[in-house]
């Protein structure tokens, strides 16, 4: 089961790489890159084209190999195999939440400032991991965010993004 899932994943990743590489290879023939011909073919897309060609060949080979392997895999229905798979699916909402939360943090980093965004992120991310002690989480989120902010902003003099609402941070 796990192997079948990994083989399907490999096919998907390789196909995505193949599609992207084909698009980018086509893109290298855009008129914007015509300077390549002015430099006897050694222009800006000379080297990327070689790389894209290699990526296309490798991705196509991996996708075909993986597809072939997936079709031959005899999917096991044993309960022992099914258990980790169920655990994986059970954690999917948490994984999506962690990615979304980090994406939100990355956006808020500039928009709301380092200190505020970090406090909120450090309050919420432990919950995604299943840790549920509000007192410890609050103490950790505030102290960690303030300590790192003070260290970088005041001691190391690295300018961190400020919030639009407070002049100090």
């Amino acid at each position: 089961m796990l192997v079948a899932a990994r083989a399907n994943g490999t096919t998907a990743v390789a196909t995505l790489a193949l599609g992207t590489a084909l698009f980018l290879f086509w893109h290298t023939f855009e008129p914007a890159y015509d300077t390549a011909f002015a430099a006897a073919g050694r222009g800006p897309v000379f080297y990327p084209r070689i790389l894209l060609g290699i990526i296309i060949v490798l991705a196509a080979t991996i996708a075909l190999k993986s597809l072939f392997q997936t079709s031959r895999v005899q999917i096991s229905r044993r309960p022992a195999d099914a258990a980790p798979d169920r655990a994986g699916w059970r954690a999917l909402p948490a994984l999506v939440a962690a990615i979304a939360l980090t994406a939100g943090y990355v956006m808020a980093f500039s928009a709301a400032g380092y200190l505020l965004s970090t406090v909120v992120y450090a309050l919420l991310l432990p919950l995604v991991f299943g840790y549920r002690n509000p007192l410890v989480i609050s103490a950790f989120a505030i102290s960690y965010a303030v300590a790192t902010w003070y260290l970088f902003e005041k001691v190391f003099l690295i300018i961190l993004p400020k919030s639009p609402w407070f002049a100090a941070f």
């Binding site: 990355v106 380092y114 970090t118 991310l125 432990p126 991991f129 989480i137 790192t148 690295i158 300018i159």
Partner: peptide, 25 residues
């Protein structure tokens, strides 16, 4: 140390490093 707190600490400081090199969001 609870994994949730540990990984939060690691991720925040690592992202700070990613930002700090060029100061580019």
């Amino acid at each position: 140390v609870p994994q949730g707190l540990l990984m939060t600490g690691v991720v925040v400081i690592a992202l700070l490093g990613a930002y700090g090199v060029r100061g580019n969001p």
